[in-house]
Simulated assay, not measured.
Amino acid sequence: MEELAFLENASASFVDLEMSGPPANPLPFGRATTGRAERVDAMVLNPVTGEHLEVSNIIYERHPDRRPPDRAYWVGRKLKKCIFGVVKECTLLRFRNDALVPWEVTSGKAAVKIMSWQKIRELQHIEDPIKEVSAMQYISEGGQHPHVMGVLDVLKDEEYLLLFMPFCSSGDLFGFVQQAGRFPEPMARYWFMQILEGLTHLQKKGVCHRDMSLENILVDEYRTAVVIDLGMCLRVPYDDGETGGVADVSAGTLRRLINPLIPCGKPNYISPEVLKSEVPFDGFAIDLWATAVMLFIMLVGLPPWEFAREEDPRFRMVARGGLERMLRSWNREISPLAADLLQKMLREDPRQRLSLEEVKVHPWVLYEGGGAVPQAPGHEEWRG
């Protein structure tokens, strides 16, 4: 039943959604759940060398019933700054139940976003990290997905909110494009298909990301693309199937269009209907639009436009079916199949764009020409 409902939504047209019911506001996410953070200095065993080392800045969840923690995080080097604080790399520790040397180093890594409560209070009107935590916990229900960033632990103390996540060691996909200039089509397809799997998971959960971009795709050590940054996402409304009211994705019905909202996201990637902010929009369609822009940049090495507005001559050319002509003028031609896919995903009218299911069965996506698994850039970086 759930799979049938997903397929119906993944193939639904804008017209289908207009007939599903009146536009609605996004649904709220559930309340974020947090554990109590305990920060200690302790002895740690290196199981490879047998050495004991006293280390500082070990964080774990303090359970009310005082049962032993499941794991701990040895917080290490700074990876980057973020709006509310800093992101750091962590080493996962295993509890040994030994009073003298209570922890043991493992090969596991994590990243922690350390957010100041003071900063959260000051800037919550701009961006709400509590909502991002709620969304990530919602997305992670039922287990981690390989192509969407999930949550390991969410802890707090008097000063900080601590969001622990899987560690991605190879930077973001935008860095790969910058290094390469542009991708050969087999490499672009390799990444694009993984991004589509991430979108599929979000759609199955009834979530619109709203900020899809190459900068928001991290790459792990196994060359897996992971969608990150759910700070702007929306929980899509669905028809309740009975009274004409609004339900969530679990209703197994068609989703509704969403009432206009203030535009957000990175300018290159925002769809024209969201930029205008005058008419209802389809949450899934705007993510697919941004994904098409991502594919364009991977294949061409440049963004298609600054803003998807009539005033931009590049947008006007693509909107009128001239994508291939524009690329010939740039001396950046791509295959006819790739151009066909992009042209059909980047139609100005959302009623004419491809659905997720149509994108997945497009001949360019299904092409079996293959290609080598891409290599990471020469430096390691985690960007969240």
Score class of each variant (00 low, 15 high):
147 H>V: 08
361 V>N: 12
107 S>A: 09
228 I>P: 08
336 P>Q: 00
273 E>H: 02
147 H>S: 10
217 I>C: 10
66 R>S: 14
186 P>N: 03
377 P>A: 04
331 N>G: 10
196 L>D: 10
382 W>D: 06
372 A>R: 13
348 E>F: 05
214 L>P: 10
157 D>I: 08
17 L>K: 13
151 V>R: 02
72 A>K: 00
375 Q>H: 09
228 I>A: 15
330 W>F: 15
160 Y>Q: 15
267 P>I: 00
332 R>F: 03
269 Y>F: 11
19 M>F: 09
288 L>P: 07
246 V>P: 11
329 S>P: 00
198 G>S: 03
113 K>N: 08
14 F>D: 05
147 H>F: 12
107 S>G: 07
227 V>W: 02
32 A>T: 06
25 N>I: 06
306 E>H: 13
278 E>S: 15
69 P>N: 02
353 R>K: 01
290 A>H: 04
335 S>M: 01
80 K>T: 15
45 L>S: 13
188 A>C: 10
261 L>W: 06
135 A>N: 08
199 L>D: 07
263 P>S: 08
246 V>S: 06
384 G>H: 04
47 P>D: 04
111 A>N: 04
122 E>S: 12
294 M>L: 10
15 V>E: 13
62 R>L: 09
111 A>R: 00
166 P>D: 09
128 D>V: 09
77 R>C: 04
99 A>K: 13
195 I>N: 05
233 C>Y: 01
266 K>H: 07
12 A>Y: 12
223 R>Y: 05
108 G>A: 11
247 A>R: 00
258 I>L: 03
294 M>S: 15
20 S>K: 04
33 T>I: 12
213 S>Q: 06
281 F>S: 02
14 F>N: 03
315 F>D: 04
358 E>W: 07
130 I>E: 06
21 G>I: 03
312 D>S: 01
354 L>V: 08
102 P>L: 01
240 D>S: 05
254 L>M: 10
339 A>I: 02
9 N>G: 14
382 W>Y: 15
298 M>S: 09
321 G>N: 06
340 D>Q: 00
16 D>C: 07
7 L>N: 14
194 Q>W: 03
276 K>T: 12
118 Q>L: 13
344 K>D: 10
110 A>Q: 01
238 Y>G: 12
152 L>V: 15
335 S>R: 02
